[in-house]
């Protein structure tokens, strides 16, 4: 009887393996689940850097256990959530996979940041979620900047930033909290295709009525401000600090409070134009 159950489970079990930014991941399930939906969701979430691979030995294994109504998720045998709906499972899986890729990406440093480029030079805006990162990026690309990302600044070993042009996740359309994914074209903008040097890192936070007073930070102070948004710092500190140092050697790191995104975007562009001859 027990063997029959095990056999049945084995037959039901399904698996996909993929590689993203050099990170090898598998997702297994012991139940019938829509793997096509998962694949599409992850491919969008990882900005199409998603390559299915057969017979891969993965470093990170996600395991979905469930029946027709509720699901549980484990990562490397550690429970993440249990008894949740499929919608919630998908949200959690997407989020966990994306963070795993960002933490372990080979030869890349992922910062939680918005990125745009003007004249082939990047402006990186590190920020936590719910701190207006996307609003600022959206305002900048509406004013002509090239879109690179509203989620991650993906830095290579030379400190250049690569596009991570997933759709912009904008709040305030459905309601105050829910996000709606919009393609960059909706903003009358284009997405960057090439890696570009970082010319400016802007540390900023929305404060109602705040005055724009950019203060230039030293390289060390600047890196200390960027670190809280640096995903792989604990996993590969040496490589990460080396990359951040390369960014700091070239870029101006500045800090200021800011008011509304549209006004701030104008100020950023003007500030950037004045700096351009120095960069």
């Amino acid at each position: 009887m027990e063997n029959e159950v095990k056999k049945e489970l084995k037959e039901k079990q399904k698996k996909i393996s993929f590689e993203s930014y050099g990170v090898k991941i598998s997702i297994e399930a012991d139940c019938d689940i829509d793997f096509n939906l998962i694949k599409n969701c992850l491919a969008d979430s990882l900005s199409r850097e998603f390559n299915l691979v057969e017979n891969q030995t993965s470093d990170h294994i996600f395991y979905i256990n469930g029946d027709n109504f509720t699901y549980s998720l484990e990562k490397n045998k550690e429970k993440i959530v249990s008894d949740v709906s499929f919608e919630f499972l998908l949200d959690t899986l997407e989020s966990k996979v994306r963070i795993t890729v960002a933490e372990f990406a080979v030869g890349r440093v992922f910062l939680h940041a918005g990125v745009v480029a003007i004249d082939g030079k990047a402006i990186v805006i590190p920020a936590r979620s719910y701190h207006g990162k996307t609003s600022l990026v959206a305002a900048l690309i509406r004013q002509g900047a090239v879109y690179y990302s509203d989620e991650y600044a993906v830095l290579d070993e030379n400190g250049y930033v690569h596009p991570f042009p997933k759709m912009l996740s904008v709040r305030g359309i459905i309601d105050q909290y829910a996000q709606k994914d919009l393609p960059v074209e909706e903003f009358g903008a284009v997405a960057g295709t090439d890696a570009v040097p970082v010319a400016m890192v802007l540390i900023t936070e929305y404060v109602e009525g705040a005055e724009w007073k950019p203060e230039q930070l030293s390289a060390g102070q600047g890196i200390m401000e960027i670190l809280p948004h640096t995903i792989p710092i604990r996993n590969k500190p040496e490589f990460t600090l080396n990359v951040l140092n390369k960014v700091a050697e070239r870029a101006i790191i500045t800090k200021t409070m800011r008011a509304e995104a549209v006004d701030t975007a104008l100020l950023i562009k003007s500030f950037f134009a004045k700096l351009a001859f120095k960069i």
Partner: peptide
Amino acid sequence: LVAPTAVLAVACSGVQTADSCGTGNCNRG
């Protein structure tokens, strides 16, 4: 400063996880 874990680096605040940002909840389920 204490370096953030990968999850905290994308969190809404110092106490939330990315999942809690993503869903506004604390280990829902």
